[in-house]
Amino acid sequence: MSAKIISPKTYVLVWLALMILLFLTWGASEINFGVFSPVIAIVIAVIKMLLVVLIFMHVRYSSRLTWVFAAAGFLWLMIMITLTMGDYLTRGTVRPQNKSIPEWKVDTESQSR
């Protein structure tokens, strides 16, 4: 069969890297990085995913078509999240014409609690 054979050593090294990343992300969650805490956690998760997809799942050694298929799901998920969050992030940001600015401020504050 055509698939490339990768040495077990590579797999073990990838696993070690995954474990180190797990340790890092766990450690990072114990430290307060403010707004960057979630960013760090997600970035590490993406790196872990890439390691699994590229090496364990052999995408690195596969055809361009495989790359496209592997990326499509994530790309479409990003479309869904971006456009939906586009709604939730901008709700209540336009003042209705029948409300004065102070009235509207009270409204939005009570909405977002």
């Binding site: 992300t25 969650s29 307060n32 990085f33 403010g34 805490s37 979630p38 997600i42």
Partner: peptide
Amino acid sequence: HFVDIVWIFLYPLIYLISRHS
């Protein structure tokens, strides 16, 4: 591996990102 990847994202979303933020 895909099942693993789902968990790789569930782990930070559920357990990590809100510990200090």
